[in-house]
Nucleic acid binder design. Structure first.
Lengths: 118, 118
DNA sequence: CAGATATATTTAATTTACGATATATATGAT
DNA sequence: ATCATATATATCGTAAATTAAATATATCTG
């Protein structure tokens, strides 16, 4: 899967829930839906649906492990797209919204283990 | 204008006409509406309206000079946003669509002069 | 002022995105 | 087979984006 539709990347990042997911995944490496749901304080079906959109756009990839499905930034993205995501995550990391997401994630009780990359 | 709404940047880039405008502006520095209209082979009102959206999102700024209005990537954008645009322009430069836009621009007869930065 | 050119705005029709809620599927355990 | 948990999908009402076409505004020139 070499090429990506450029507008689709930006369209995928143009929604706040999706952007917060991607920023968290860029920062943390791999997260499951329940971690993202907890971190964003969002409804599970909403998170799931937005992750599906991200997957269809090629922005994230998923991996099932038992009951959990772990998402991460798609490692097959072209370099420029990975650079875009890196830039955004860096530039947004200390904004309150994204900061709170990370805090809530790290203080989540009983986080599932078995993550590939920390 | 220090802060930008992050999703707005990506929303602005999520439309192909707007993305092509921004990539051209990033490559060429400053262009007027008629140059963009010619390069994209698009309808003038469409280009104008999309440029207005880009301006409202803070992605581009404009400068009137006589009859012409010159647009450029907003120099007051935060660094991460400029980096995003730079990454995208670099990564997309040799795709056929963006290549053709640049070719058409450079072969445009009677391009208006008086550009600030080439 | 009239005319020409560059650009902007408006309108209406269509499509698409969104959030909320309900429901379905999949996996593992008993 | 049943139950519990994690995740996914479907439906619906509504808001927002997009396009095309018509029209308006602004600036320069004579």
């Amino acid at each position: 899967m070499p090429d990506i539709v450029a507008e689709s990347l930006f369209g995928a990042l143009s929604n706040l829930i999706r952007l917060r997911c991607v920023v968290l995944l860029q920062q943390e490496g791999e997260l499951c839906v329940c971690e993202l749901t907890h971190a964003l304080e969002a409804a599970q079906p909403a998170v799931s649906r937005h992750l599906a959109l991200l997957r269809e756009a090629g922005v994230v990839s998923d991996r099932r492990e038992g009951l959990w499905i772990h998402y991460r930034v798609n490692p097959e993205l072209p370099n420029w797209a990975r650079a875009v995501i890196r830039d955004a995550a860096k530039g947004l990391a200390d904004r309150s919204t994204f900061n709170r997401d990370r805090k809530r994630l790290h203080s989540m009780p009983d986080r599932p283990r078995g993550r590939l990359c920390a």
